[in-house]
Simulated scan of single mutants.
Amino acid sequence: MTSLKQLFDASRSRLTPVYGGSEASWLLRIIMEHIKGWNQVELLMRADKEVSDFTVTRVNEVIDRLLAYEPIQYIFGDTYWHGMTLKVSPAVLIPRPETEELVDIITKDNPQPDLKVLDVCTGSGCIAVALAKFMNFPEVTAIDISDRAIAVAKENAALQKVKVDFQTADALDLGAALTAKYDIIVSNPPYVMDKEKSAMDANVLDHEPAIALFVPDSDPLKFYKAIADYAADALTDGGRLYFELNPLTADSLKDWMQQSGWRDVSLLPDLHAKTRFMIARK
């Protein structure tokens, strides 16, 4: 029989060459939490206890998938983000910590109740669900071009017990689907340029949906411009537009926004000091 410590040590040895020691340990904690329901304290207490052959087999199956660069969030179908456990699938991007910062910016800027919010390119619904949960009684609408993504987003809203109006629509042609006025429009649209692919990890390139990631090098601002053009009519007077950005194109977008008549256009850094967010006022 194998002890938990022996299983951990052998598993960490397999994962470390690909993920590094600290991430390997983090992955193993996630694996055991999902397979056995044990937290970190329980893992320490059980270190010398024997584990079943079934557990060893299940752990090794997950490690095989991790070594093929499949994200652990897709393996188990969920991720912990902004204090919530959200469902994810290969139909949606895995929510990033930077997007948590965007949610915090919006909630801090907008404490008043009953605001109407539109989330464009909602994906997993993480932004829409978080705003519905943490803002003061907002009315939230969220759109995505992917029916599969909308299905995941609806599941997340149900799990978090919040109300969001999810609709299938094209971010490049919002006027064809939406007629309401909004106090806030937010989007984390596709913004990674094709030329950046060579620097990206295999777990992103091979598993996350390209439609939610990439834009052509010849037109990297296509989603921002389309959404901003729509927002110019769809926002209430004084309404705010929030974007998550590619740091490589942030300055170009700011220049275009200012030339297009937007007021109070500002760029904000993320926690890694990269230009990551834009706020503009109608």
Rank of each mutant, 00 (worst) to 15 (best):
P216K: 05
A47P: 00
V117F: 10
S266R: 13
N60A: 11
T179Y: 03
L86F: 15
A128E: 04
W262V: 02
G125R: 01
E23F: 02
A226V: 04
N39Q: 11
V51W: 05
G261S: 08
M200E: 08
T122Q: 02
V88K: 05
D194V: 02
G125E: 03
L43E: 09
I145K: 06
V129Y: 00
G261W: 11
D270W: 09
S89N: 05
A130P: 03
E42D: 11
S260G: 00
S198C: 11
G20R: 00
L271M: 11
K197S: 10
V51F: 05
L67C: 10
Q6H: 08
F76Y: 10
V129F: 03
G21F: 10
L27P: 03
P111M: 12
N110A: 09
A68N: 14
Q258N: 09
S52V: 07
P111H: 12
D78C: 12
V59I: 03
F277N: 00
K133G: 01
Q259N: 10
E42K: 07
T249I: 03
L67G: 12
A158V: 11
M1Y: 02
P220W: 11
A228C: 11
L44C: 02
K225A: 13
L102F: 12
G123A: 11
H272Y: 12
S266Q: 12
W262L: 08
Y242V: 01
Q73A: 15
P95S: 06
Q40E: 13
Y74C: 02
C126S: 13
Q6C: 08
W256L: 09
G37F: 08
Q167N: 14
G123W: 04
D78S: 15
D48Y: 01
E139I: 02
K282Q: 14
E50F: 14
V92A: 07
A176K: 12
T168S: 14
D255A: 13
R148T: 05
S11H: 01
C121M: 04
L235R: 07
P113M: 05
V265P: 01
